[in-house]
């Protein structure tokens, strides 16, 4: 097996790894403060999903993490220019894709 075939075979794997790393949705608390992410999905029942949707937090929405309080406290986020406080448990169910 020559060097060329190794590159040929490894390259797509590496690309996929990078792509995956970049595009696999993260739970909201993993977003660094100050960054914006796009909501991919809400992992939760109808009740939670509706409650979040009422405040504009739904798939496709852009959500900016402003601040995360210590001791697993709530997160302060901004959606559509509105600031919302979300408990830590709630935020783990919001999956986002970081935007540049």
């Amino acid at each position: 097996m020559g060097r060329g075939s190794l590159v040929r075979e490894a390259f797509p794997v590496i690309i996929r790894l990078i792509m995956n790393f970049d595009f696999e949705p993260l739970p909201l608390p993993s977003l660094p403060p100050g960054r914006t992410g796009q909501v991919v999905r809400i992992q939760g029942g109808r009740g939670l999903t509706l409650r979040l949707a009422r405040l504009g937090i739904r798939p496709g929405a852009r959500i900016r993490l402003i601040s995360a309080s210590p001791f697993s406290g709530p997160l302060l986020v901004e959606v559509d220019g509105v600031r919302v406080a979300l408990g830590r448990g709630v935020t783990r169910r919001i999956l986002v894709r970081p935007l540049p």
Binding site: L76, L86, G87, V90
Partner: peptide, 10 residues
């Protein structure tokens, strides 16, 4: 309860 979801007014 189901966790905090509260609008923070400007």
């Amino acid at each position: 309860g189901p966790g905090l979801i509260m609008e923070i007014p400007p």
